[in-house]
């Protein structure tokens, strides 16, 4: 991915991510997240991780964000009520953000060994990100993790049903 394309996508990505936090209307906020996730998927695509890009859109933008929108509509959240922050809340949030920013910045500046990015696309093998390569790993070496995922999903189903029945009562 050329630096030009990277910034063409990264700048709106940051803008929409900010939109998620700053938008007053919850629907706009959720939609900003959808756009941000979509842009992220385009970046994955341009980095030759096409499978991940597609799954990113199918699962995150196409499924999870629909649930977010449903919750917003279900609870009839119109406008975010003017918050009455507890004293010190903002300070703590700020400190945590700064610490997070510091570590992320440190990682970004040092660069990860195999992270393809602007100018390092040659480091990638031809089969990188291909469906076969991913499936090979997932269904042989990580077979157990894959099976455990099904149990995790089962727990999620049970949890959802139990919680919803409580709400209905």
């Amino acid at each position: 991915m050329s630096p030009f394309l990277f910034f063409l996508l990264a700048v709106p990505l940051v803008v929409f991510s900010l939109g998620v936090v700053l938008a007053r209307s919850p629907v706009r906020s959720a939609l900003s997240l959808v756009v941000a996730l979509f842009l992220l998927a385009v970046m994955f695509f341009l980095l030759d991780a096409r499978m991940i890009a597609a799954l990113q859109v199918i699962v995150y933008a196409g499924a999870i964000m629909v649930l977010f929108l449903f919750v917003i509509m279900l609870l009839n959240l119109q406008q975010e009520p003017v918050e009455t922050a507890r004293p010190g809340q903002r300070t703590i949030a700020g400190v945590f953000s700064l610490v997070f920013l510091f570590f992320m910045g440190a990682i970004a500046l040092r660069g990860l060994p195999v992270m393809p990015g602007p100018g390092v696309e040659t480091a990638v093998t031809p089969s990188f990100g291909s469906v076969e390569a991913l499936a090979e790993r997932l269904f042989t070496r990580h077979a157990l993790a894959f099976e455990v995922t099904s149990v995790l999903l089962l727990v999620a189903i049970v949890g959802a049903v139990v919680l919803a029945r409580k709400i209905q009562r």
């Binding site: 096409r50 499978m51 859109v57 629909v66 929108l69």
Partner: peptide
């Protein structure tokens, strides 16, 4: 021309729901 064309199509059709919701 995408080698994961089928997934690409599913990804795009899964976005169709936003027009309706919005």
């Amino acid at each position: 021309e995408v080698d994961v064309g089928v997934l690409f199509l599913l990804a795009m059709t899964s976005l169709g729901v936003y027009g309706v919701v919005l």
